[in-house]
């Protein structure tokens, strides 16, 4: 096979894997409330899942010092004083997996106080795996082809 054509095909496949819209089975949006307890330096529960479109309420309770909860990608946050419940409501309109993290300096491991919110499927992970597989598929025939050419040259 013409190797340039093959590469082009591969690049096209890569673009499809990276950007083609994911089939989403739409589930009627719900209202969901999560009570998350924060302590140095963890949340519990530290992982939770919602469906795209859900109206999510996070009730943050701190067990020791002041903690925050900032959701990457959504750029929203809430702050809870010890013993008090603070709440944050938002519509989970961006699908994917997002880290949430403490945004109030609360002690040594503060920068690593992290949890995870997944909205729908973590499609970027699957796309990335797809790209890795494609990368290898493309790599094999192409590089062995190169090798052969080198051998022939010799």
């Amino acid at each position: 096979m013409n190797s340039r054509f093959f590469l082009l095909l591969l690049a096209a496949a890569g673009l499809v894997v990276a950007f083609a819209p994911f089939p989403v089975q739409s589930i009627a949006p719900q209202e969901r409330t999560f009570r998350i307890e924060a302590r140095q330096f963890a949340y519990s529960p530290s992982e939770f899942k919602v469906n795209p479109g859900d109206t999510v309420t996070i009730q943050l309770v701190s067990a020791d010092v002041v903690h925050g909860l900032y959701v990457d990608g959504y750029n929203i946050s809430v702050e809870a004083d010890p013993g008090q419940t603070a709440s944050l409501t938002f519509i989970a309109d961006k699908p994917g997996s997002f880290r949430f993290r403490c945004n109030v300096t609360c002690g040594a491991m503060h920068p690593f106080m992290i949890g995870r919110l997944t909205v729908g499927t973590n499609s970027w992970l699957f796309r990335s795996i797809g790209l890795a597989v494609l990368g290898l598929i493309g790599f094999f025939p192409f590089s062995f082809h190169k090798e052969r050419m080198l051998v022939e040259k010799r």
Binding site: F41, A42, Y43, S46, E47, R99, F112, I114, G115, R116
Partner: peptide, 8 residues
Amino acid sequence: LGPWGALK
């Protein structure tokens, strides 16, 4: 970077 507090 993981969400596992016990590990931290």
